[in-house]
Amino acid sequence: MLTPKARGPLSQAVNEALAIAPDRVDVPDAGSAEDAAIALWTLYELHYRGFDDVDDALEWHPGLLGVRRDLEQDLEDRLRSRWTPYTPTGDVGEELFAYVAAHDGPSLAKHVQSQADEEQVLELFRLRSIYHAKEADPTAWVVPRLSTGPKAALMELQFDEYGDGDPNRLHSHLWALGMDALGLRADYGAYIDDVPPEILEQNNVMSLFGLHRRLRGAALGHLAAFEMTSSMPSRRMAQGLQRLGLADAMVAYYAEHVEADAVHEQLAARSICGALVAAEPSLAGDVFLGAFTCLDLEDRFARRQLAEWGVA
């Protein structure tokens, strides 16, 4: 992948710094939320697969890390300001299920199931591809930060995301097969220049939670909410694709998620978050910050996209 297009003065300055690797990196203020979001996304990407046009050594460039830190602080402040703090008093798994069930938001999957046209569905896939091409990767950062109980529990789930050792079943690979069958680009980050700020923020949050040991509770709460809101929406997606006669390979991706995430939601809520809070009770609040953030950011994206399509 090449460096994404700049979306304002800050991301322009970040891209220039990535090109010339100056000793000091001075950047202007962001011109917009979108400018800040793409700059942060670009800086995070250095820790995943990097860019063909950027020196791999810049992953740990102190000047760039400083820019990243400022952008992360703004993002985390924003997330915390949107959230009403909540600390569970009983069983964490049960409370997570209740917390997610009590949340009501717009559903893109319902629109795809019954109304969306082919063009809208393909657009949705281009936007979702930014995450699905690195599906489960942001959560993998969390593994070494955990103690025995939650570490084993998280790996039980992650192993399944990664195909149980079979590359043909790796979820991001199933996604790529679906994209290819639909005639869309399956390569990593292919549509980054097309995605709106809501998608960038969803992605950046997963990296923020994954890359900061301090935020491991939020990372696992985010995972739980993500898995808990996947099974039924995945079936709606599969039904929408079938209604439109779209590629079986993408139907297969969603069918796998109906079944896998019915398991994963139980594991994430009960064995992963349950074990984490048992081992580190002080992280209980952050688990719910993560869960809330996952639900809230999906709402923001869904509202934007439905409005763009004139649906809501």
């Binding site: 099974s231 039924m232 079936r235 069918a255 079944e259 995430d261 019915a262 398991v263 139980q266």
Partner: peptide
């Protein structure tokens, strides 16, 4: 694996949420 216990899954015997 998650085996459906409610009887309402559309992907029985597996749970589908």
């Amino acid at each position: 694996s998650a085996v459906c216990r409610c009887g309402k899954s559309q992907t029985k015997p597996w749970c589908d949420g």
